[in-house]
């Protein structure tokens, strides 16, 4: 059976759309808590609905991932790099689900209404509890920083494949026609 040579087109679309959204969220989040200007309110008003949109897309993306196998990595890739790739991909999936849930959960625990846009209000997903709020709020911060660092490493690794190794791994996620050599895994 042949493994595919590229990611499913929808997976590629989701990857790049969500890459943009998640990177934007990291910068919006870091920026809004570091200013007392009107940008604080304006950015927070974008942060919440965009974060919930990421949560919904991440669920769809994970479902797609479990149905469609990704292309396998080049056979000559050192074991530690394979492990790092697998671990970091699952970490990225975990964080893109965890951060919006933490955001939603911490606002619920803080007793805040969770308002998206002008009028849409989400239900609380946790009971009002200020101690829980404090833990979740700090977790939201530190896991966001972990997501940022993982993203920087992931981007560097992607470029390493595309520019240094030129082994088709980057191409398998790009919308281009270039394909990785098919890998035959069994008869």
């Amino acid at each position: 059976m042949n493994t595919p040579t590229t990611f499913h087109p929808l997976a590629r679309l989701l990857h790049w759309a969500m890459a943009g959204m998640i990177v934007a969220m990291l910068f919006i989040g870091a920026g809004m808590v570091a200013t007392v200007s009107e940008r604080h309110s304006g950015l927070l008003a974008i942060h919440k609905p965009l974060g919930i949109a990421i949560l919904l897309l991440a669920i769809a993306r994970l479902a797609l991932r479990l149905r469609h196998r990704p292309p396998s990595l080049p056979a000559d890739l050192p074991l530690w790099q394979r492990l790092a790739a697998t671990a970091s991909h699952w970490l990225l999936y975990a964080l893109m689900l965890a951060l919006p849930l933490l955001g939603w959960g911490m606002l619920s625990a803080g007793g805040y209404p969770v308002i998206l846009g002008d009028t849409m209000r989400l239900p609380a997903i946790l009971p009002e509890n200020a101690l829980l709020f404090a833990w979740l709020r700090e977790a939201h911060r530190y896991l966001a920083w972990l997501l940022f660092l993982t993203f920087v490493a992931h981007m560097s690794a992607g470029l390493y494949h595309g520019l240094v190794r030129r082994d088709g791994v980057l191409a398998s996620m790009l919308p281009s026609r270039r394909r990785r050599e098919p890998v035959v895994t069994d008869g």
């Binding site: 803080g110 200020a130 101690l131 829980l132 709020f133 404090a134 833990w135 709020r137 700090e138």
Partner: peptide, 11 residues
């Protein structure tokens, strides 16, 4: 609010 709740929660 984060400072005082973190103190209450013994973070």
């Amino acid at each position: 609010y984060l400072r005082r709740t973190a103190e209450e929660a013994h973070l």
